[in-house]
Each structure stands twice: as C-alpha cells, then as structure tokens.
Nucleic acid binder design. Structure first.
Length: 425
RNA sequence: GGAGAGAUGACCGAGCGGCCGAAGGUGCACGCUUGGAAAGCGUGUGUACCCCAACAGGGUACCGCGGGUUCGAAUCCCGCUCUCUCCGCCA
C-alpha cells in the first residue's frame, strides 16, 4: 500500500499513475476518506482528553454533589466517544479497502502502455533454434517420452494438473538443484517454505486471498490460503519487525509449490504445462536498503540471465509496461524464453520475472529499519530463479531432436544422471 | 485432539481499579572520570497515529488479541490466539 499522506499530497501524480496502470482505484476518494478519518480522530482524541481530565478529577475527596456531577459528565463523554468510535471504524474500514486498490508508483523509465505489446525489449541472448524437421509441442513430446501425464491428472485432480513421471521427475529435481546451487553460490539463504500462508500475509504481499477475481486458493473456514508463490512466505518472514540495517541486503531463496486458480485463462497460449494450477518454483527474495533497491533489481535480473544462459535457452528481457505491472511492482523485468511451438511459428513465453516493489509491501507488512533515529520501510524485491513447469516447456521444445528424443542441457546432466530422454513405445 | 501453566518495554522482572507509559535491574547511547581500558558517577533510552514547516513541541492510544463492567482498567469479567509441560495420534 501507499502512504495515506503521500496520496493526499501527490494526488495528481497518483491519479495519473492509476490511469497508466490500468487499475480500478480512486485516489480522490482515498484523500477524502483520509480527511474524514483525521477529523474523527481529532474529535475523539479531544473527547478522550476531557474524559481523562474528568476521571482524574475524582481522585480526591469530593462532596457527593460534586461527585455526582463528575459521574454524569463522564457518562455523557463515554456515550459521545463510543458513538464517534463506531463512525471512525466505518470510515477506516472504507479507507483501507480503497487504499489497497491503489497500485505502487511506477519507475519513470517503465514504458507507458496498456498491454503486452507495449513492453519494451531491453536485451536478448542466444539464437532461436532452426529445426530441420517439424518440431512438436511439449505436450506431444511429454506424452511420447512418457514423462508428463495430463489425462490421468485431469481425471484425478481436474484440468490443468499433471503428473510428472519417470525422467520428468528427475528433470524437475535437477532444475531445482541447479537453481538452488546457483543461489547458494550467490550467498542466498536457502529455504523450503510453507505452502500455506495466512490471509493477511498474502494480502500484504499484494495477493487478494478472497473474492472471485482472486488467483489463489483460499481454504474454506480458515484464514489461510495456498501460496501462489514463495514470495508470500519469504516476504512475510520479517512481517511486523524492525530489521538491522547492517544486515541488509537479506537474500533468501525459497523452494515451494505454487497454487493458482487461473480462472478463465485458456487458449493456445496456456496449453499444457504453460499455465497450470500447481507447479514448483525456486523464488529469490531480497530485503534491501531503500537506496540500493534499483541496484538489487538489476542483480536479480542478472542471476535469472545466468541461470538461463547456463541452460542455453534463447531469451529476451522486457521492461514491463505500466499497464502490466499489477499492484505492488514499481518496476518489473520479465524474461521470455523462445518456445518453438508457441502460436503458429513459435514465440516468446514468460519464464521468470523480477520485480522491485520498493516499500509498497513493506508498509503493509510493517517491515522497517531505524537509522539515525529515523524510521523507514525496507524495500522488497522478488524474482523467479526457476519456475519448473515453464522451464520444462522450454527445454522439451528447444532440445527436441529429429528422432523424437530430447537432450538434457549440460548444466543439468550432473543432477539428472542422464543426458537425453528417449521416446517410449 | 485432551489436561495444566503462562503471556508486561531490546531483555529480565514488579505491579492494591485512580498517584502506571508503567518500579527495579540488565543492555544500549551520550557525557564525566582515565595515559588507555574496566569499574564508578550522571543523563537519556518503545511503537503507532493526529496537530505542526519541524527527527522542536503538544495530544491520543497501546502492558498477547478482541469484547464487556466502570466516571476511570495492565489491574475485575467473558471469548480467542500463542508459548511451555504432560497425554493421545502421527510422516
């Protein structure tokens, strides 16, 4: 969330940003509710002050007349206070709902735009494979190699679930190990995180755990949800605490399952493993000093590039346009890998993203540092190291061979124990 | 899941319904002292929000969380959560 006062004092910029972000939010309403709230707080505090004075007037010995008068006065104050308190509660409730709709501000260099086509490519690496045969898509390959089973998963769990089988299992584990080892070498603290988180942590990160438009599964009759990403549990790690400024940056890598409802997402671009309800991911998370977050953002992107260069998969990086940034990100880089069977003649498919959320999440979660007596919110960043299901899409499609087999990227063979996967009969 | 014990500031630990934002101690910061250090002495040391140009000043709230009783609650009553111990179950 943004700071109330910031919204009020920068109303024009915030409104402009809301428009650029393609978000349904009303900064003006926030400013009005904020004023209303402050007025009520002012009145309440004034009355409470009088209540306290009235009460302390009864500490000494009094005639029963005086006593009676003070009690009467106290009762009146009590009624008025509780009336205003109820009003305040209503106003604060509305204010909170409204402020949460307001997205983070945007980096001045983030491209203005409404949709994917407005993302700006800032670099690319590798070359798109040139097949001397007609490449098959990963669904077909997975079936032929007997390493992915969608049909049975649909029967057992529903659409957009899958079983990984045989070498597919090792492929997932290899990707996970590869990512974790890379991050360990970068000084990240490795973690396996809970797959369930409390609603208020999830919403602090910027995920709405309830409601029809929510992308995450809420568990009925509880106040918890299945995590959509380890970003939630890693970002909640220091919730409501002060961090030691000397300890920053804190770099964490979290391995978790990710659960997403993906309601309504369908079509050729989300077929197979590309868009599923459950996948495994290694997530990077950084708590940064506010002055360093821009640098840390580049650093996270650098690691993502390193991981995919290691896999020798051709990719491009896009600077995500304002309309695609979502709520918490100040700036976001997406990494897209070439997927030969995406669309008619292949296309770029998102495999990772790195976001600098500045203090947007930290404010809601209450994560601060104290420096020279001044309190500020930390900056929080996240980036994907490996989203396993999408990495598998990319590997299967890019590393397929004419005979139907799939080679394993050399960076992974030490973990898989095999160098290629042959079709089964 | 069952039984019991507890929850107070960075930490330990007092606290009779009004004199408690909270004794005392430890720690920490600054100063004095010292050739330097330790000890000693002195001063200070929470968070959130509101007013305000203000990290100056003023105000309100906060003693696990939420309600209630009362003119007045850290103190009384109710509910919840969490922690610890024991039992059960269990990968």
């Amino acid at each position: 969330m943004l700071d109330y006062r910031f919204i009020k004092e920068n109303l024009r910029e915030v409104k402009e940003n809301v428009k650029n972000r393609r978000v349904d939010a009303d900064p003006e309403l926030v400013a009005e509710l904020y004023d209303e709230r402050n007025g009520l707080i002012h009145d309440i505090e004034d009355l409470r002050k009088r209540r306290n004075e009235n009460a302390s007037g009864m500490k000494r010995k009094l005639s029963s007349d005086e006593r009676e008068k003070l009690i009467e006065e106290g009762k009146k104050l009590k009624t008025r206070i509780s009336g205003l308190e109820k009003e305040l509660e209503v106003v604060e409730g509305k204010l909170y709902i409204e402020v949460l709709k307001i997205p983070n501000m945007s980096h001045p260099d983030a491209p203005l735009g409404m949709g994917e086509e407005d993302n700006r490519e800032i670099k690319h690496w590798g070359s798109v494979p040139d097949f001397d045969f007609t490449p098959k898509d990963h669904v077909e390959i997975g079936k032929a190699l007997d390493i992915v089973d969608f049909d049975t998963a649909t029967k057992v769990s529903g659409q957009k679930f899958y079983y990984l089988k045989n070498e597919g299992v090792y492929l997932e584990l290899a990707l996970v190990r590869y990512a974790l080892d890379t991050l360990r070498d970068e000084g990240f603290v490795l973690m396996i995180t809970p797959d369930i988180a409390k609603d208020d942590i999830a919403s602090g990160i910027g995920f709405n755990p309830r409601g029809s438009e929510s992308n995450i599964y809420h568990i009925e009759n509880t106040q918890v949800c299945l995590v959509g990403t380890a970003e939630i549990t890693l970002g909640g790690y220091y919730a409501n605490s002060f961090m030691d400024p000397g300890s920053l940056p804190v770099k964490m890598a979290g391995l978790s399952h990710c659960f997403r409802k993906e309601a309504g997402a369908a079509g050729q671009f989300s077929k197979g493993l590309y868009r599923v309800h459950q996948f495994t991911k290694v997530e990077m998370f950084v708590y940064s000093h506010p002055e360093e977050s821009g640098k840390m953002h580049e650093y996270l992107l650098g690691i993502e590039e390193k991981i995919f260069r290691g896999l020798k998969l051709p990719y491009r990086i896009v600077d995500t346009c304002t309309g695609e940034l979502g709520g918490p990100a100040y700036r976001k880089y997406d990494m897209e890998v070439w997927m030969p069977c995406r669309g008619e003649k292949g296309g770029w498919g998102e495999v990772t993203s790195a976001s600098n959320c500045t203090d947007y999440q930290a404010r809601r979660l209450g994560i601060k540092i104290k420096e020279k007596g001044k309190k500020t919110f930390v900056h929080m960043l996240n980036g994907t190291a490996i989203a396993v299901s999408r990495a598998i899409v990319a590997i299967l499609e890019n590393y397929q061979q004419k005979d139907g087999s799939v080679r394993i990227p050399s960076a992974l063979t030490g973990y898989t124990g095999f160098t290629e996967i042959q079709p089964k009969n």
